[in-house]
Simulated assay, not measured.
Amino acid sequence: MAKRKILVDSTRRELEAHGTETFPMTVNHDDLWSFEGKNVPIHWHNDLEISLPREGEAIYQVYQKSYRVRPGEGLLLNRNVPHSCSSPRNERALYSTILVRPDFLYGDFGSDVERNCFRPFLQNSAVPCIHLTEADENGKEILQKLNQVETVFDQKSFCYELKIKGLLCEVFSMILYAHRQELTKFIPANQQELERLEKMLNYLNLHFAEVISLQELADQVHLSREVCCRLFKKMTGKTITGYLEEYRVNKSFPLVQSGQYSMTQIAELAGFSNPSRFASAFRKRFGCNPGEYNSLKNNRL
């Protein structure tokens, strides 16, 4: 079975539209094991995203902080926030994902709803995400309504679109009100930092199979090597070396699955300096050596 991919451009911005132009929201039923590398790599999009784990735990990396989200909880991700998702110990994780374009909820830009309610959140880099739990009655009701959104979307009965919009408006009213104190600490999103991250990711992704010079990478964004490293860690939560190793391992995954290449060939194609480094990185990511992967997979079938 072909593995799923997050379709992104060279800056890691997701290309796939969520929903339709006339109904810009959708609900996905996701399985981390269905993605290449059993994880969702760093990406971002203009839509709001709410993850609701159903089985197993999902670990979201949002900037420098990790969020472990369990069944019965949720994570609201702000728009244009780089994030990735994995599972602890490479275990299976099933989860539902609600994706919605913000103007579906607030209407026209500049409206009172957009300006007074959504703008303090959408344009606030101090609140990249909100962890949703059942810690109180408000949290329980929010999660119940989000579960309703999924049910109504799946059933698609008459006027389901209106029902979903109503539920989502209620949910965001409750979330934003509950976090109103955090939203007063408004820090405007730094567009220049996001643009610099886009350039760095673009360069790394294009040249992953080559020996990459930190100085050349820093030159792409007109920063010193030290500031370049700090900015990358701030925006992704990963070191440049760590991100590159993860990206190369994910690129090696379909080559290992094919069974057509030697470990030396795969290491070279994926940009590793030697087979032992490749094997070590693969083992760290998947819990087994590259040569063992296909036999272990077949034994599980």
Rank of each mutant, 00 (worst) to 15 (best):
residue 1 M to H: 12
residue 1 M to G: 15
residue 2 A to Q: 14
residue 5 K to E: 12
residue 8 V to P: 01
residue 8 V to E: 05
residue 11 T to N: 10
residue 19 G to A: 03
residue 21 E to P: 00
residue 26 T to W: 00
residue 29 H to M: 09
residue 31 D to A: 09
residue 36 E to D: 07
residue 38 K to H: 14
residue 38 K to D: 09
residue 42 I to F: 12
residue 47 D to A: 14
residue 48 L to Q: 03
residue 48 L to N: 04
residue 56 G to R: 03
residue 61 Q to W: 00
residue 64 Q to F: 02
residue 66 S to T: 08
residue 68 R to V: 13
residue 70 R to D: 10
residue 76 L to Y: 06
residue 77 L to M: 13
residue 78 N to I: 04
residue 81 V to W: 06
residue 82 P to C: 13
residue 84 S to H: 04
residue 86 S to C: 09
residue 88 P to E: 11
residue 93 A to W: 00
residue 94 L to W: 08
residue 95 Y to C: 06
residue 95 Y to W: 11
residue 99 L to V: 15
residue 100 V to G: 05
residue 107 G to M: 00
residue 110 G to A: 11
residue 110 G to M: 06
residue 113 V to E: 09
residue 114 E to R: 09
residue 120 P to A: 10
residue 126 A to Q: 07
residue 128 P to Y: 10
residue 129 C to K: 02
residue 134 E to Y: 03
residue 136 D to T: 08
residue 137 E to S: 14
residue 138 N to I: 13
residue 139 G to T: 13
residue 143 L to M: 00
residue 143 L to V: 02
residue 148 Q to H: 09
residue 149 V to K: 02
residue 150 E to P: 07
residue 156 K to E: 09
residue 158 F to M: 01
residue 159 C to M: 15
residue 160 Y to V: 08
residue 160 Y to E: 04
residue 162 L to Q: 11
residue 164 I to C: 03
residue 171 V to N: 13
residue 174 M to H: 08
residue 176 L to T: 01
residue 176 L to A: 01
residue 177 Y to C: 14
residue 181 Q to F: 02
residue 181 Q to I: 04
residue 181 Q to C: 04
residue 186 F to S: 00
residue 187 I to C: 01
residue 189 A to P: 05
residue 195 E to L: 10
residue 198 E to D: 10
residue 198 E to Q: 15
residue 210 E to T: 10
residue 210 E to V: 04
residue 214 L to T: 07
residue 215 Q to I: 10
residue 221 V to G: 01
residue 223 L to Y: 13
residue 226 E to I: 07
residue 228 C to Q: 06
residue 232 F to L: 09
residue 234 K to N: 14
residue 235 M to I: 05
residue 237 G to D: 07
residue 237 G to V: 13
residue 243 Y to F: 07
residue 244 L to M: 02
residue 244 L to T: 06
residue 246 E to S: 15
residue 246 E to A: 15
residue 249 V to D: 02
residue 250 N to M: 07
residue 251 K to W: 08
residue 252 S to M: 06
residue 254 P to Y: 11
residue 257 Q to E: 11
residue 257 Q to Y: 01
residue 258 S to Q: 12
residue 258 S to L: 03
residue 258 S to C: 05
residue 258 S to G: 09
residue 259 G to A: 05
residue 261 Y to T: 10
residue 262 S to E: 13
residue 277 R to S: 12
residue 281 A to M: 03
residue 281 A to F: 02
residue 299 N to H: 10
residue 300 R to I: 10
residue 300 R to H: 15
